[in-house]
């Protein structure tokens, strides 16, 4: 529990543990898992009832998975 003293929260600890487990998977389970665990946000800007701009924000894992899928 020395991570607690270093200012790491339980949520961060849990998240790190989960990432390590995913990293140690065999392919193709790993790619599938990482893609399903990813996160992205789509921001759409509307002006006068029309969409003028779409922006997709991805985290690093999702970006990597998307890049791999498009290859």
């Amino acid at each position: 529990m020395s991570w607690r003293a270093a200012g790491i929260t339980f949520l961060k600890y849990s998240q790190l543990c989960a990432e390590h487990v995913r990293e140690a998977l065999k392919e193709p389970m790993k790619a599938k898992k990482i893609a399903s665990e990813g996160l992205h946000v789509r921001i759409m800007k509307y002006e006068g009832g029309k969409r003028v701009k779409t922006e997709i924000i991805e985290d690093a894992a999702t970006a990597a998975a998307t890049a791999a899928a498009n290859k």
Partner: peptide, 18 residues
Amino acid sequence: DEKEKAQAEIGLEVYQAM
């Protein structure tokens, strides 16, 4: 570094358990 060391220890804990 205390924080980096703690993070490395978490990695070691998980990999050792696996």
